[in-house]
Write a protein that binds this DNA or RNA. Structure first.
Lengths: 337, 337
DNA sequence: CTTGGCACTCAGGAGCAATGAGTGCCAGCG
DNA sequence: CGCTGGCACTCATTGCTCCTGAGTGCCAAG
């Protein structure tokens, strides 16, 4: 029902509108793109596109603007992801490989992505539940206090202080530590609770209270971190575009962890880049923004997501390219550390 | 040179302008505050205040607006810090005491302060250099890899991975760990480098390379964290006030760690609340904002600063009260953990 | 199906007058 | 000497009209 030329017209409208931020008219289209037809013909096509809901006019005597549905078609069928230049790839690589810490990796990633796309970047910390135990450590830090350190295979380190009932001997701690590590080594974090259910029974009667305390703190840590940590950067880039709606709503939404979580959405079906456009977004405050997101992880294992938020009027091919590239490099960096 | 009534007029102007955000005229002043004089008299006083640079008119036929100098006088001599209500104090206390982690304490603090003042809150992490070593831990995580964990008396935990030359026996690690802890226990972090200078000489010849690796990573950690970590929240509150200048500049400034650091400024002379108004700020992008900041710490020990950033037109007494209260409670929480 | 021509629509800007809040100044009063 | 009421003056803001021009829809001809 939409022949090739109409699609070409839609593509041209999207591209022009994205670059100029002004409604695009039939004459301008005929001039700037060589579609080989006259403005009048383009007007006819535009009338059809409008009738089908792909474009709209802000007011009667203005040019056309893509609707969310129009962007959707553009993203799905009219554009291809634009790979980054070699220079950009190299910059990403060197910038990210300078990180020395999981916090630092995530921090650099989010700043990098924000700068690369000139939009708001959002990065989720590697999921705890999807990673596995590399090491557990128990350290006495004071009389009646232990520090529990949990290190995952993704380099994430969680620590918690445990108040123990009474003092605990070095020996007991050593025993408990060994026990924990043999029980848990390499285990997925989701399987930890089951594996530890009978922990108190495995130690001597004297150490049972301590074991119970350690166990409860450990489980608590896993539960509390189930709600994943997530960060964003580049809010200043929002101020550059002037939003039809209030910029405030967007900022409010960004500061809500929960909203951010929903924003990135479920991990995609395939490993490709996911795009959510305007009203497709779950949050009301973000109805005029689009989100481009992707999974990242090491090897086959998906750890978390990252993405970019910007006005629906965004350069999708480039943004998708940047998101995909950064996701890949983060995976590599995490695998190498 | 400024008699009491003129000061009262200035105070009234500041208060009215802060609450209405509109230039205030002589008639409105006479109506809303009972100064006991007529508008004409107030006009004379206002002329003097303007001549001295405390107030200004946006245009000839408009009311007056306080200048930075006017706010300064107001803060220094015409207002007192407004204590929080009991309910607010209780809310702060319960909210902060729910934290289980240094990250969590800081995160909660910054969100709390932002909400309390309806402005942008900025919180600096407790200084590493001013705290002392509570415990050092060395953990083998893989062949040829150790994890170094450094715990400070403020609950801050730093961890770094060390690539060791060759494999290291459990025994050597134990020895090294014991050595580190005896050398460093309770030591201020600033003194660590000196205390460890001769570390390699204290271990057996076989362990020297390992000791050297550990040492270099440890020193590196201290140096890298000398540049303190700092976070902010409540950017959405900026959108509510409409800035004369571009909001973008402010957002850009906020995302620069370095600017944020300078923003809070040096630790104050006394333990009171510091106010920096408009052009008193070091950063160009923040010439129309004010910063209210205070030190926080445990006991006599100042650990870091926190504060609030908002338009120069802000409710200083309340903001100062909130900042002071939160700074105190954070200190208490940190002391108790 | 495409195209040039043509009448029509309407947002945005320019020009202009009226409004009114607020000022500065001055003469009179206590 | 300081306060007050009166008064002329300034000027941002608002509302109004008019005009312009980009852009459209429709139609008849190629």
């Amino acid at each position: 029902m939409l022949d090739d030329r109409k699609l070409a017209v839609l593509r041209a409208i999207v591209e022009d509108f994205v670059s100029t931020n002004e409604p695009v008219g039939s004459k301008a289209l005929a001039d700037r793109h060589n579609l080989g037809v006259s403005p009048a013909t383009i007007r006819n096509d535009m009338a059809v596109l409008e009738e089908q809901g792909y474009i709209a006019q802000p007011h009667t005597s203005a040019g056309r603007v893509p609707t969310d549905k129009g962007y959707r078609l553009f993203v799905d069928r009219l554009s291809t992801i634009k790979p980054l230049s070699v220079a950009e790839r190299r910059a990403i690589e060197t910038f990210l490989s300078g990180a020395y810490d999981l916090d630092d990796v995530v921090g650099r990633t989010v700043r990098l992505l924000a700068q690369l796309t000139r939009q708001v970047a959002v990065v989720q910390y590697p999921s705890l539940t999807r990673s596995s135990v590399r090491h557990v450590e128990l350290v006495p830090v004071a009389e009646g206090r232990l520090l529990l350190v949990l290190i995952t295979n993704t380099g994430r380190v969680e620590q918690r202080v445990i108040d123990t009932p009474g003092t605990v001997s070095e020996e007991s701690i050593g025993h408990l530590r060994a026990l924990l590590n043999t029980c848990l080594d390499g285990l997925g974090l989701g399987d930890v609770p089951a594996a530890l259910a009978d922990l108190p029974e495995k130690v001597g009667a004297d150490d049972r209270p301590v074991a119970a305390a350690v166990l409860s703190v450990l489980l608590e840590t896993l539960v509390e971190n189930h709600e994943e940590k997530i960060v964003f950067a580049g809010a200043a880039n929002l101020a550059a575009v002037d939003f039809s709606q209030s910029l405030r709503e967007v900022l409010v939404a960004l500061e809500e962890q929960v909203v951010l979580m929903r924003l990135l959405g479920e991990t995609g079906d395939s490993s490709t880049v996911t795009v959510r456009i305007g009203t497709e977004n779950p949050d009301l405050g973000l109805r005029s923004t689009s989100v481009v997101a992707a999974d990242y992880g090491v090897g086959d294992l998906t750890l978390a997501r990252l993405g970019v938020l910007g006005p629906t009027r965004m350069d999708y091919p480039s943004t998708m390219g940047a998101v995909r590239a950064v996701a890949r490099y983060v995976g590599q960096i995490l695998a190498g550390s």
